[in-house]
Write a protein that binds this DNA or RNA. Structure first.
Lengths: 186, 186
DNA sequence: CTCCTTAGAGACGTGGCGTCTCTTACGCGT
DNA sequence: ACGCGTAAGAGACGCCACGTCTCTAAGGAG
């Protein structure tokens, strides 16, 4: 019997978890099923992750790398923000709301990271826009800086269907751009 | 043995559920415990609600009535919006994040109601402000109308501690009021 | 070649869900 | 006043998945 070990095995486990997640959703995902799919025992899972939530989070990271490390750079403030929001939408509609809610409920210590990371992304985008002269200053209140991504996240959490692109453009054109003193068109 | 019936019994059940919710939180709340506290059997619960989520939701409604039916009327737009957000904060910090997340995960059909209700509340507030002449028009994009309550809800969901009032005022002063063309102070 | 880690497999105890069953109280109609 | 039917009170039951424990054997390190 070929016996998998170390990183190789771990990859198989994470892939199995991801497959189960896509097929059954978070609520239906069981450790037994993941182990069975990976053709191994539960203990192999529990040796690496303390519970279902940790396994799933690890499998998400493994599958898609860490969230937005490729900050969009379209040359315009509007394009950049649209890009960020679109990325968020794509990523989370793939997961589906039940996975998101399930993880929130079972892994309360997950969010701070994802949460604060976006603030940095937005800050970078705004800084560039200020340097280009699109807006007067990069000195924007945090609450404004995080408004679009937070509203986007809110949309993702509450809408039980994919977020339409019209909502995304509305968030940018009717909320964010006015707040940073960017007059569109005119 | 005095045997409770109908509405009387139902009230006892809902109170028991609420007490368990406050004591143990949603994740730890069990049907057994609720039944025991109400000095009855589980069947009495299952005869009325299909599962834990429905019971808890009913108990929340029973305990605090339906959300914001008392739309604040402070005489100023700023005061009204602050009032609404403060009510949301109060209500939900009482519940705690784990209850909220748990319910979201298990009762996907709960939110639309709560969600859309706030839009109406905000619309009423803005309409009054326009009539008072505080702002030019009550014709505000939906995405702006819902921005403060949505951001508030986002804050509640992600912050694992009570929302500070500084955040609430920031939402109103740095996001909402500028968006509806209200120049503060000046 | 031996040793030690750990993969693979499955049994096990636990806990809560939701169902089923049974007895018994009590409101209602006649 | 009486009996019928509905539903309360109580608990047993099967089930499922969690997370733990135990055992055997593979295969890398020395």
């Amino acid at each position: 019997m070929e016996r998998r070990r170390g990183a190789e095995l771990e990859a198989v486990l994470l892939d199995a978890a991801w497959a189960e997640l896509m097929e059954s959703g978070y609520a239906q995902l069981t450790m037994e099923a993941v182990a069975a799919r990976a053709q191994t025992g539960k203990q192999v899972l529990y040796r690496r992750w303390r519970n279902r939530a940790e396994l799933v989070i690890a499998s998400m990271r493994h599958h898609a790398g860490s969230i937005v490390e490729n900050v969009p750079d379209t040359g315009s403030l509007r394009g950049d923000v649209l890009g960020v929001l679109q990325q968020m939408a794509d990523r989370f509609t793939q997961l589906g709301p039940d996975t998101i809610h399930g993880l929130m409920a079972e892994a309360p210590d997950l969010d701070p990271e994802v949460y604060s990371r976006m603030t940095g992304v937005m800050a970078a985008i705004v800084k560039r826009a200020a340097e280009r002269g699109e807006i007067a200053t990069a000195d924007v209140p945090v609450v404004v800086l995080t408004a679009p991504t937070n509203l986007m996240r809110h949309e993702i959490f509450f809408s039980h269907s994919p977020v339409p692109s019209s909502t995304i453009t509305a968030l940018v054109d009717d909320v964010f751009l006015p707040l940073v003193g960017f007059s569109r068109g005119t």
